[in-house]
Computed example of a mutant assay.
Amino acid sequence: MTSTRTGGIEVRRLTDEVIRSFDGTPDARTKTILTSLVRHLHDFVREIEPSLPEWEAAIEFLTAVGHKCDPVRQEFVLLSDVLGVSMLVETINDQHAPGATDSTVLGPFHMTVSPTRELGESIDEVGSPHHLLVTGTVRGTDGQALPHATVDVWQCNEEGFYDVQQPETQPAGNGRGLFITDEQGRFWFRTVPPSHYPIPTDGPVGALLKATDRHPYRPAHIHFIAQSDRYQPLTTHIFLPGSPYLDSDAVFAVKPSLVGDLGTVDADQARQYGVAVGSAMATVDLILAPDQDGATDVH
């Protein structure tokens, strides 16, 4: 009898048979993806040689990840993040946008619509005592300012929680805002200094971190998605300098170019932006690459 263990003829034959089953796939890219997926997945199984209980545990884990997903939390995104897959995808796609701001992970909390806000408005709806002024520009890799670009912003509060994590104390939309740049491609808003925080650990991803003795913390940051006609959308962060965990982000999302500089508001800036002198201030430039497909719709 032919062995079905690693290297056995029947094991290899099974892989070939599954791959041949995709021969009639109409879309070439779909066929390529599925063929590669099966080849690598089967190689992984041959290498690990899981027992049936281990295979069942893997199925149960993925099922639990799906059960933990809801309209305001995406556990599969979190799993992709902690395995470094999200950052790998972002880094590969960055290669196609030379000169643009480095991208980074979306994260699991961009699951609600940010409220539309006027330039200069505060995204802090609970009246926190500490303030941070954020000013920035959106422009193309050619240096052209991009008026009427959208800038979607979201962040945690000073205690490290997003609005969806504390619906009893934070109103929906707190720490979030959708802004439109002015004719010079500029945007600005008021907020609070975000804190470092742990990613959610009450689900299967948290159990995975515990099993591997990994910490769940992310350094302090603000999320941005910038979009403009005829340019590739950009998903990125700015990280606050000096924050804990800059060198060990649980989702591997820190890039040196995204660690910003913090300054303080002077008298002229205080008058211009309506904030107190001495408030913390962060400046961010979001640089978008041209849309290679020539699309003109902003989603």
Rank of each mutant, 00 (worst) to 15 (best):
R46C: 13
I48N: 05
I48S: 09
I48H: 06
I48D: 07
E49S: 13
L52W: 12
L52Q: 15
L52M: 14
P53C: 10
E54T: 11
E54L: 03
W55I: 13
E56I: 12
A57M: 06
A58C: 07
I59G: 04
E60F: 08
E60Y: 10
F61S: 11
F61Y: 14
F61H: 12
L62T: 13
A64W: 03
G66T: 04
H67K: 13
H67R: 11
K68P: 00
C69R: 10
P71I: 10
P71D: 14
Q74G: 11
L78M: 14
L78W: 11
L79S: 05
L79K: 03
S80Y: 01
V82P: 00
L83Y: 07
L83W: 04
G84N: 08
G84H: 03
G84V: 01
G84M: 03
V85L: 04
M87D: 07
V89R: 10
V89I: 09
V89A: 10
V89C: 07
T91D: 03
T91L: 03
T91V: 02
N93E: 02
D94F: 02
D94L: 02
D94G: 03
D94C: 02
D94W: 00
H96I: 06
P98N: 06
P98I: 00
G99P: 06
G99V: 00
D102P: 05
D102F: 12
S103P: 01
S103H: 02
S103E: 03
V105A: 08
V105L: 05
L106H: 13
F109W: 10
F109R: 02
H110V: 04
M111R: 15
T112C: 09
V113H: 12
S114A: 15
P115D: 05
T116Q: 15
T116N: 14
R117G: 02
E118F: 08
L119T: 14
G120T: 01
E121N: 05
S122E: 07
S122M: 09
S122A: 13
S122F: 11
I123S: 00
D124M: 04
E125T: 09
E125F: 12
E125H: 13
G127E: 01
P129D: 13
H130S: 15
L132W: 02
L132A: 00
L133V: 14
L133C: 09
V134M: 02
V134K: 01
G136F: 01
T137Q: 05
R139D: 11
G140Y: 04
T141Y: 13
